[in-house]
Design a protein around this nucleic acid. Structure first.
Lengths: 340, 340
DNA sequence: TCAAAGAGTGTAATCGTTCTCAGCGGCTTG
DNA sequence: CAAGCCGCTGAGAACGATTACACTCTTTGA
């Protein structure tokens, strides 16, 4: 029996000599169906090779089985891993992933948020481009649950999964101070996002603890991309009195800073110590290895997706914020500063 | 005017005092509408904050505005970049991305392919898990165009975008031979996929050119992941007469091999030379840098997506295969072998 | 002057599901 | 034995958009 045209539930009903309602009941296992009829319908389904039209289902339910994932850029390894973790949990529950790269662009982000609302997705996991300016209101109004990950969103109350950024930055900075560093440069992602703001706070906290006055000339803040990390690191290294250590505030900044240091012909840790955010798969290849705070990214992604699933399934607990602990990986990028 | 419930085309029609057909005509700019009515309808749309329900549209058209992307794993940087390139072109044409990780698992892949058919996606870009066993038939039957990328698919005729693997592997091997290497190990991804098979062919071709008989004991083939690369490299390095150079057949294998070499305490290029596939963003950080064949990944992704769009828009040219040239990046991981 | 063409608009069917409602037997129960 | 209930089933109404077709006016050309 070749399915020249697509086989619909009507065809199945007709061939099995029952109504579409009954076929639907068999399909979704809802409502009573006699064993005999169920058998016949199931046989017909197999014989005709019938597969339910998912679009029709979503349309009828006025809710699709898609999870929108709005991140700044899949090519950022942090988000890559996040995507993977989310996808694993999503597919296990018969949801699939709609991927959007906002590029930290508020306008683009707004478009995608509206798009998700127009698509009536089941839920959205997002990493807002700005803590104060990103608005999930369109989703909120449409009753679409949202989980914010890696960053907070202030405008709408949403569940949130974060790294304990303050602790991570503080511990890394303490590590530097502990090795005797006093003049420590810091390169941070944008302070308008949670990670930037909190990592700065952690850095300052450690400095203060140690009775060190942070030097504003040693603190750089900007777009959290490789180019900025390299640029800021170069600026620090060309200072008349250059810092003996650099704290880097995210993975791409770390990458950029490392390239700049190499470019300047400086050696780690002898000429400059480095400790910063985010483990990456190739870091153990470097000699010396770089001391970093690793995030439990997969755990963050899975947690976010699970929280979202709970909301989708009607959970109406008050909004909650989960904060996960970083893991410090001590390698050899920090030594005591050489006395001048 | 608060949209308590969702605003539909019917609401707009009613408020503007026209029929839904007219509103639809205004929306899609199809068919004649008088300037006066168009103006009124547009005003009503804005006033009510009406946004077309995309699900309803897809349902009615029996074709969604989604592009299915089936790759083995987003966490593989090659696919990460591919995803990004595809997404950029897709969104520019009002399509969005449905992401699936097959993990090289034929069963999982089959599920996803069927899923895409059930969703009536507009098109699929896939990197088949096996050249001979992956079947896009379900999509073909449903009239959904497919572009195969990075690897060929033999069972169904589909457009294909490939790297010139033979040339890349051959040039890398030539580079090793040119530096005087005779005993060259090769670590290749699975030969059941195009890249594995062709890269082996390129390797053998260069060997033959140079009058060298490849030693089967030096050729490893397996799942193209980091663990395999490391494992195979270790095996090569522990050989009584170990190769003076290693050719690595993809990005993860290269990563694994580098880790194994480091682990064995061997130095590149003095103890063992390395040249292999795929540039990665951190490669320039290594000392010495690794000589690789870089793929124009973004170009591959963009090309694949453009070919797919052409098919979606009804292009019925015969199937075509695009082969893009690699770019050799010569660094310092290859020197002449130290005489024994 | 009248037929044909065409602009502008509305009616209603349609896409494939799900789900409410109602009906029909057969069973239990008071 | 009537009333009520339950198991099983079907008819048909949604869901929100597009579009084929029909209809009414105008305009045009012979």
């Amino acid at each position: 029996m070749k399915d020249k045209a697509t086989v619909t539930i009507r065809d199945v009903a007709q061939h099995a000599g029952v109504s579409t309602a009954t076929v639907s009941r068999v399909l979704s296992n809802s409502g009573p169906v006699s064993a005999e009829v169920r058998e016949r319908v199931e046989h017909t389904i197999r014989a005709l090779g019938y597969r339910p039209n998912r679009m029709a289902r979503s349309f009828r339910a006025q809710r699709s089985k898609f999870i929108g994932l709005i991140i700044s850029d899949v090519e950022n390894p942090f988000y890559t891993s996040l995507v993977r973790a989310v996808e694993d949990v999503a597919y296990a529950h018969d949801y699939s992933l709609l991927l959007c790269n906002s590029d930290e662009d508020l306008e683009k982000e707004r478009t995608y948020i509206q798009f998700m609302a127009d698509e009536r997705v089941a839920g959205v996991i997002g990493s807002p481009a700005s803590e104060q300016e990103t608005s999930f209101a369109a989703l909120f109004d449409a009753g679409i649950p949202v989980v914010s990950v890696d960053r907070r969103s202030a405008l709408t109350p949403v569940d949130t999964v974060l790294l304990d950024n303050v602790a991570a930055a503080r511990d890394l900075t303490r590590h530097l101070i502990h090795h005797g560093h006093r003049r420590i440069g810091a390169i941070l992602p944008n302070l308008s996002i949670t990670s930037g703001r909190e990592r700065l706070a952690g850095f300052l906290q450690a400095m203060e603890e140690a009775g060190l006055a942070p030097d504003p000339a040693l603190i750089h803040e900007g777009k959290g991309i490789e180019a900025f990390g390299a640029h800021a690191a170069r600026a620090l290294l060309h200072l008349p009195e250059r810092p003996t250590a650099i704290f880097t505030g995210n993975n791409l900044i770390t990458l950029g800073a490392l390239k700049a240091i190499q470019e300047c012909g400086l050696r780690i840790p002898d000429d400059v110590a480095v400790a910063g955010h985010d483990e990456m798969p190739w870091m153990s290849l470097l000699a010396p290895g770089i001391t970093v705070a690793a995030q439990p990214i997969h755990e963050m992604g899975r947690t976010a997706m699970r929280m979202l699933l709970a909301r989708i399934n009607g959970d109406s607990q008050p909004m909650c914020e989960v904060k996960l602990a970083p893991r410090l990986i001590i390698r050899n990028s920090v030594a005591s500063p050489t006395p001048i």
